[in-house]
Design a protein around this nucleic acid. Sequence first.
DNA 1: GTGGTCTAGACCACA
DNA 2: GTGGTCTAGACCACA
Lengths: 127, 127, 127, 127
Amino acid sequence: MLDIRLEGKAPIYEQLYNGIAQLISSERLKPDEKLPAVREVAKQLGINPNTVQKAYAQLEQAGLIYSMPAKGSYVAPRTHAAAALRAEAVKRLEASLYDAKKSGIPRGDVDELVEKIWSTDRNEGNS
Amino acid sequence: MLDIRLEGKAPIYEQLYNGIAQLISSERLKPDEKLPAVREVAKQLGINPNTVQKAYAQLEQAGLIYSMPAKGSYVAPRTHAAAALRAEAVKRLEASLYDAKKSGIPRGDVDELVEKIWSTDRNEGNS
Amino acid sequence: MLDIRLEGKAPIYEQLYNGIAQLISSERLKPDEKLPAVREVAKQLGINPNTVQKAYAQLEQAGLIYSMPAKGSYVAPRTHAAAALRAEAVKRLEASLYDAKKSGIPRGDVDELVEKIWSTDRNEGNS
Amino acid sequence: MLDIRLEGKAPIYEQLYNGIAQLISSERLKPDEKLPAVREVAKQLGINPNTVQKAYAQLEQAGLIYSMPAKGSYVAPRTHAAAALRAEAVKRLEASLYDAKKSGIPRGDVDELVEKIWSTDRNEGNS
DNA sequence: GTGGTCTAGACCACA
DNA sequence: GTGGTCTAGACCACA
């Protein structure tokens, strides 16, 4: 229901934040779409509701979602969200590519990585 | 003697690791050059020897340095160090590409970025 | 609770590492099973928590366990653990073969040993 | 002059001991052959004469070499040395192969390793 | 409660 | 002197 995989050493609330931001950025979550309730996400992922609450609070503070008390949380309207996030993502990727080039990684290796990752069509999820 | 500034919230041993890795990568520390002793670095930076020890241990395990107990620690031969650094760079790049994909960046945009960066003729290198 | 005996001159954290690796390898610790907490192991064995922490950190880095800060440490999924253990076994075997060669053991003798051991039908396994 | 490579974390005197033992076991050092002088070995390998002295002392104590004061050290006569060492080496290798089998390494992989190592004809030495 | 980081300080074998 | 190990004990963010 929220196709997000928790893994690695980063704090869970941060992984949740990034995961949802990516869903918004890629428009798999559309503007004004309702997010699943905090408790639901917590149960689904087997984590503490406080942790989900923290992620939602930070998403709201970042202007990516808005919440209507007693109703739920919703993806913010277009202008605020997707475009800006995508621009940021591109910027981070560009920096990574420059680093890779500086480290002497040949372009061919990069192209192979890109091929490998983008051809893994669909199904990021469920290990 | 080791021109590294500690700052920010990242763990000290990690900052040390990255700082030394950069010195090796940029060849300001040359292959087989002796690194300052654990205790010396600790005194110089005003931190605990154990913390320096941890950074050195991880650098050794990554293949960037080798240490001979009772003699000292040394920068690994060029090939080893370069291979280790490239392996790390590839790992970071792969993570970035996954993030970019999840953020909805189309493959075409990525290919363009790669083209743009790698066609920038030659030597973008050693910052 | 972790049936491990510390003895001999090897570093404690290394004995712990090997002991736990064996429990995982023999599946007395199953995939995704929770390991006892760092402090608990320390108390039980009468050693310092830092020493246990070191063993756990290295097990995680070898891919044999994964840890979620504030939740606990868990045995890695079967595939990861098995791959890590095999990688280590191959490394040890390679070293042994080099030693054997240096000691002047002719290749023919080695081949005979391999033949003898692998033809011993099936399941020599889980000690 | 003593084709031995020092590497890894083991104490140098131990590496020296094993290296010389292997040369004797493989009969690249023959019975009653003279070993190079302590000081010579120390200079050649860039290590402390005390370290070489320690290795020689332990080799003598193990009955692998004998020393004639003011003359030098010599490889012990046949019966004491090569045969026993080789038997030990075979035993260690056999144990390693059993471990490898228990770890699930397929015979094919072992054969490849053997092929790789024994076909690297000659020249163990000089990195 | 949990893993993770860090300090202060000790001791060891080896060189 | 050098790297490596270990203890005792503190503090942190996160859950």
